[in-house]
Simulated assay, not measured.
Amino acid sequence: MTDISVRALGEEDWQVYRDVRLAALREAPDAFAASASQEEKYDEDFWRKRMGRSRRLVAESGDQVVGVVSVGRRPTDDERISELFGLWVSPDLRGKGVAWKLVDAGVKQAREDKYDFVIYWVGTDNGRAVAFASSFGFRPTDGRRPMTSTPPEGEDPEDEMAMIYPLGDDPGAVPSAVL
């Protein structure tokens, strides 16, 4: 495998995040709630503010950004829960360990930020993603929600399930806010 490094971006790296986010939206439009045409219109101020809402981590091969994931506080009353979201890897490097490195860095970041759990929403019909998250140590929960992306006309929206990764001493603990 190509040597891949992962690093956290700062606010000053907003253009790096913008470029990889737009690449992800163009390459996998059905995987995200937003569209490239929508986000291409956002200005520098928007992107800088977005950088401050969550940690943005990128995978790099040399000087090329080849993947991204975000990790941040889950919008819930339970401040112990962090959420991993927006995972994307360049198609030519899928299946080569890049996603693993990004998720590992995201989990480590959540631990450094003093969270007790990481939630990762995975499409219930996406066996590959469920298997990947399970192999990393995420466990399925009863938490379900409709995917936020728009399904093709005439089709029902796919569901996502919350998969949880405990960061504390009790790997069997699952916060009720997830369920």
Rank of each mutant, 00 (worst) to 15 (best):
S82P: 05
I119V: 14
A59N: 06
G62D: 09
L179M: 13
D45N: 13
V20K: 00
V65T: 13
K101D: 03
S135E: 05
P175A: 10
V68A: 05
L25I: 04
D3E: 13
V103A: 02
R73K: 14
S134A: 15
R48F: 10
F138D: 08
V118R: 08
K114T: 12
S37H: 06
F132V: 07
R80A: 09
F136K: 11
E11P: 08
L167A: 09
D19Q: 14
D3P: 04
D170T: 02
G154H: 07
R144L: 12
V69K: 06
V98G: 01
V107A: 01
V174D: 01
D104F: 00
L102D: 04
E11R: 13
T2Y: 09
K96V: 00
L57F: 09
R55L: 11
S61Q: 15
L102Q: 07
L25K: 02
D170R: 03
V65G: 01
K108W: 01
A110D: 02
R53H: 15
F117P: 01
W100A: 12
L22K: 01
V20M: 09
G154L: 08
P146L: 04
V130K: 04
L84T: 05
V130Q: 08
M161C: 11
E158F: 06
R74T: 00
M51V: 09
V16D: 09
P157G: 08
G10A: 12
K114F: 06
S176F: 06
M147Q: 14
T141W: 02
G86L: 07
Y17F: 15
G143M: 09
E60T: 14
G168V: 02
I4T: 15
S176K: 12
W14R: 03
D116V: 06
V58L: 00
E12G: 15
A59I: 10
L57Q: 04
D170A: 02
V20Y: 00
K41I: 11
F117K: 02
S149W: 11
A173P: 01
R56W: 12
A133R: 04
P152T: 03
G10L: 08
R56I: 12
E11Y: 01
A33Q: 05
V68I: 11
E112H: 04
P166R: 07
L9T: 10
R80I: 01
P151S: 13
